[in-house]
């Protein structure tokens, strides 16, 4: 099995509104793929289709070798989903909810009790185990929603905004547990519009917009794909002449150069790690001195905005 998940022209429409448009995404076994996109980009629809909660209008997807249209029951056996909004059985207690979930996936007796206790403790819910669901705080309810997948540890675990409503400490805890789930062998798909979450978790990122996949790559490649994304501030020991500016502009990989102060320029370059050695050679050739040099690479925010603000974005490998 080359891919744990593969969508094949997956399309979902509601009347004339297209929520997901002819999507072809592949998720490798054991990786964490983060779906990043603005509201309404189709992330949640994609997750619901993979979980067979919704049926596609056209196309299909394979999950661990099972077709979501033809073998939905098999898909539900190997894929677990943690929903965006924690809703549920208002009068049941967290321990009962997890116990019920565990029994649905074949756990019983002492083993089930052990797993439920371990999960409740792991998600800091042990002290709230006897409260009713309706009495939990928003953060606790969300942690319970996420915790369900750690009871049965599915082959493919799908999380829809796993840390929404969760405090900073809780976010880090959930992220680490998701990574732990991957280490234990699960393939993970996370949908989020929180850039920091994506940056922390992603092996690869798929940026979505208006129901379409804009680009899917690892973070490094995405950052490198932004033309002039790396910014290098170079301060010279003497005022920057027009000759120096033009020479810097001529270094391969330079997109543009701006003057910051009399002796400092800011160069917007592609792949600063390739650009810097050439810049140093130029400095020697020009027989000038550099007193300081600062490199900053584009943040994921820059990448996200770059790909979602453009109506037609180019893929890095296209």
């Amino acid at each position: 099995m080359d891919n744990a998940v593969e969508t094949l022209g997956l399309t979902k429409s509601y009347g004339k509104a297209v929520a997901l448009d002819n999507l072809d995404v592949k998720v490798k076994p054991g990786e964490i793929l983060v779906l990043l996109g603005p509201n309404g980009s189709g992330k949640t629809t994609l997750l619901h289709l993979l979980a067979t909660v919704l049926k596609p209008t056209r196309g299909t997807a394979m999950v661990m070798g099972y077709d979501i249209v033809k073998q939905p029951l098999k898909v539900r056996e190997v894929l677990g989903i943690s929903f965006q909004e924690p809703r549920g059985f208002w009068r049941h207690k967290p321990s009962h909810i997890l116990s019920f979930h565990a029994s649905f996936y074949g756990l019983s007796g002492t083993k089930k009790s052990e797993v439920v206790e371990e999960t409740l403790r792991g998600f800091d819910l042990w002290s709230s185990r006897s409260k009713r669901f309706m009495e939990l705080s928003g953060g606790q309810a969300k942690r319970l929603e996420v915790a369900k997948l750690f009871v049965h540890r599915p082959g493919v675990a799908v999380f829809d905004e796993p840390t929404a409503m969760v405090d900073l400490e809780g976010k880090r805890m959930i992220w680490d547990r998701i990574k732990g789930l991957r280490e234990a062998g699960s393939t993970i798909i996370v949908a989020t519009n929180e850039v920091r979450e994506a940056e922390y978790l992603a092996d690869r990122l798929s940026i979505m917009k208006l129901g379409k996949e804009v680009v899917t790559e690892n973070l490094r490649t995405l950052k490198d794909s932004i033309s002039g994304g790396d910014v290098v501030e170079v301060e010279f020991s003497s005022p920057v002449t027009n000759e120096i500016s033009q020479a810097v502009l001529g270094v391969p990989g330079t997109v543009r150069v701006t003057a910051e102060t009399e002796s400092m320029i800011k160069a917007f370059v592609n792949r600063s790690e390739d650009w810097l050695p050439q810049m140093m050679s130029l400095v020697q050739t020009l027989q000038t001195k550099v007193t300081s040099l600062r490199v900053s690479e584009p943040s994921l925010d820059d990448v996200f905005l770059h790909y979602t603000e453009d109506a037609v974005a180019e893929k890095p490998n296209a």
Binding site: R76, E85, G88, Y105
Partner: peptide, 14 residues
């Protein structure tokens, strides 16, 4: 409407 049904639909049940 409350989302409970969605959870049940995601469980391995016909």
């Amino acid at each position: 409407h409350e989302g409970r049904l969605r959870y049940i639909l995601s469980l391995p049940l016909r």
